[in-house]
Design a protein around this nucleic acid. Structure first.
Lengths: 247, 247
DNA sequence: TCCTGTGAACCTCTTCACAGCC
DNA sequence: GGCTGTGAAGAGGTTCACAGGA
């Protein structure tokens, strides 16, 4: 017995890296590939740009071309959620955009709290695209007393002490949080958030957060992203070195 | 022949989403799965933390446990690049960290330019982890004249006009860039960068950049990441609603 | 005994190709 | 003719399970 420190290596629905299976209930039970969900945001973005350009309908081929991907991919992805297109016509841009927003849940507004008012945190309070996409920053928290009371962002939110984080989240029923604190403080902050009912965390700290499997974490590691680029550039240059020397 | 607007749908080595094949020359020709490369950064991060904690060796199992993933995954990933471990012992933390840095190319310093000194750009000039990982910010550019001459970051870099971007990149042989400009200005900036010899772009603008296949782009779309979370939280709540009503 | 490296099985996601509809 | 939705084929990546080394 005592299975407490023997967590099953792959609990159902766990997200180790890129393999979360999100069970959906759209007209039955379905399992939606995570990559497909990620691309949904991409499709929505592009559709919005087409709507703005005054375009009324679009085929999966054209949409794919704009995004640098195949048309079958798009149709398959959409098929996970229903049928949206018209044979011979394509998709109605505005309508599909609406439907994607409904699927993603961004057809209504989500309250968000920000933990950490350092460089990145402050930048995010001024980030317009969050608001554009239906996310509303409702509270900013930091443990640094010097920042308390300082007003940030368009809504002039006052930075509050972390001690008040839990109560605030509970009171406002906040379910999404952005975590932009140093690595050493991240897990404690995450525990607070989760304890108060937060269900999704956008995590900028370079740590793997331990959370219950009902809570979702999206990691953003900018340094790692630069590392990826460095690797690829390196590789490309080695290749061309070889090509020119062994040519 | 004016093939300009007919890009082959899947040029070899293209990254439509998650399917870049990076050819490597490590003891022959090899193709390394992109997901494996992404995880390399993760391993390195964790190893550094173990090194700091004074740990000398580590098994793939323990490393996996710390990262919430399977041990076979780690061994397979590493096997793409060589053999690093000792049966019965595991991996030497510091040594493997060094080797991963060498693979990623971050065993030496990379010069980086930043384009766009808005909220995000300014936050990045103060982002310590870039420097920690071997990236050195050498120039900051913005088209907004009001910002020119303003000093940013620890190195007090003066914001320069975008007109000087190309010359600067060429002169210093810069190969990596961070692009943090509005969507409408992103492609033009990318063209400048690519024209001047940049080989990798960390792109914060919500646009699919058109670049030659010798140039690598990593997109960071924070709003999309929040959308993902919203979707998953939504789904989870629908499920529990059903569970409680149909229980 | 503990642990790595690796072929083989397995599985998920992508691409193909076409029936059916506008 | 153009385009969607989808079964089937095909890649690509992950997990298993074990031979072999420390």
């Amino acid at each position: 017995m005592a299975p407490s420190d023997e967590p099953s290596p792959a609990p159902p629905g766990a997200r180790t890296d890129g393999s979360l299976d999100a069970a959906a209930d759209l007209g039955g039970r379905a399992v939606i590939p995570l990559p497909a969900v990620r691309r949904l945001s991409l499709y929505l973005r592009q559709l919005e740009s087409f709507v703005e350009a005054g375009r009324d309908t679009i085929s999966s081929r054209d949409l794919g071309q704009a995004l640098g991907m195949g048309d079958a991919q798009i149709r398959k992805d959409l098929a996970n959620f229903g049928t949206f297109g018209q044979p011979g016509v394509g998709y109605h841009t505005g309508q599909l955009a609406d439907q994607l927003r409904a699927i993603l849940g961004t057809d209504r507004t989500w309250d968000v709290v920000l933990v950490g008012a350092g460089n990145i945190g402050r930048a995010l309070t001024a980030y317009r695209r969050f608001a554009d996409k239906g996310f509303r920053l409702r509270g900013v928290f930091d443990r640094n007393a010097e920042l308390h009371g300082r007003e940030l962002g368009e809504e002039k939110l006052q930075v509050q002490p972390t001690a008040e984080l839990g109560a605030f989240v509970r009171e406002h029923g906040v379910r999404l949080a952005v975590l932009a604190v140093p690595a050493s403080a991240a897990q404690a902050a995450a525990d607070l958030l989760v304890g108060a009912g937060v269900r999704g965390i956008l995590n900028f700290a370079p740590v793997r957060l331990q959370v219950p499997e009902t809570v979702f974490v999206n990691d953003v590691d900018l340094a790692a992203q630069l590392e990826q680029l460095a690797f690829q550039v390196n590789l490309g240059e080695e290749e061309s070195r070889q090509a020119s020397s062994a040519g």
